[in-house]
């Protein structure tokens, strides 16, 4: 990456995002509460915290899937929570997401090659004739056999589907990739090679990752910044390699709950 340490390296700023849902009983649930995070360019920002604390809601707001109740997300000088549908579509050229449940994010009638290359096709980057070759190449990157190009997602294992979702997000080489539990269905050995791939692409192409993950050890080894959330609120933000040294009681609780092998 170019030497540019004199200026601000903040690529995206999440500013005072609050998101409320109206529940069926009429009550209001505040899933995200005044969240402020600076996402650094070419770095990995991890988000951790207990189930239901608002991690997926936050990233879905960044992706324009939810409209925030208040606050904004600035990216290239624009508030991306207020885009028109057409602008949103254009924005996906720059930001891609791997969803928490890849099974639900896929059209079950599409073959793997078409799923993987759909973003490339929709931006007119490759022709129909190039789909097969490109899909094979992307499958290889995520340690899947080339023959999977003609499979359907339902006849694959959970971890294989998850890797198809990763391959699809990588296809466009976007500036930002948002990963919501993107490696939770992988065995640790495959996970290791996927993380190495993500890091390699980050170093070569400057890709920025926003990475939601329950595995604190993985987060501590791979992220540049960790954001710890509880009940919709950011509890602390710290450097990835400093996670284990945190003195915040909530972060300590998380660290102490990890099961070790021996």
């Amino acid at each position: 990456m170019s030497e540019q340490n004199n200026t601000n390296d903040c690529l995206m700023s999440i500013e005072h995002i609050t998101k409320e849902f109206k529940l069926s009983d009429g009550n209001i649930l505040r899933a995200c509460n005044d969240i402020c995070i600076d996402i650094s360019k070419g770095k990995t920002t991890a988000i951790v915290g207990e189930s239901g604390c608002g991690k997926s809601t936050l990233v879905k707001t960044i992706m324009g899937i939810h409209e925030p109740t208040s606050g904004r997300v600035m990216f290239h000088g624009k508030d991306i929570t207020k885009l028109s549908n057409k602008e949103k579509r254009q924005n996906y050229r720059h930001i891609q997401m791997v969803f928490q449940d890849p099974a639900t994010a896929f059209n079950p009638k599409m073959k793997v090659k078409d799923l993987i290359c759909e973003p490339l096709r929709s931006f007119g980057i490759i022709s129909k004739g190039e789909v097969e070759e490109r899909a094979k190449e992307l499958l290889r990157q995520v340690d899947l056999p080339e023959e999977f190009v003609n499979r359907y997602p339902h006849s694959m294992s959970g971890g294989q589907r998850q890797r198809v979702a990763i391959a699809r997000a990588l296809a466009l080489e976007p500036e930002v990739i948002v990963c919501d539990e993107a490696t939770s269905a992988l065995d640790v050995s495959v996970q290791d090679s996927i993380i190495k791939l993500l890091v390699k692409l980050q170093q070569e192409k400057g890709i920025t990752y926003i990475f939601i993950c329950h595995d604190l050890a993985l987060v501590s080894l791979f992220s540049h910044k960790v954001v710890v959330m509880q009940k919709g609120t950011v509890m602390e933000q710290l450097d990835g390699d400093k996670l284990a040294e945190s003195t915040h009681p909530y972060t300590r609780d998380l660290l102490n709950a990890v099961f070790s092998v021996h």
């Binding site: 990995t44 050890a217 993985l218 501590s220 080894l221 992220s223 990835g240 390699d241 284990a244 990890v258």
Partner: peptide
């Protein structure tokens, strides 16, 4: 050997 552990070798 692939199990990530806190304090292990960092990827970045």
């Amino acid at each position: 050997a692939s199990v990530p552990t806190i304090g292990g070798k960092r990827y970045v």
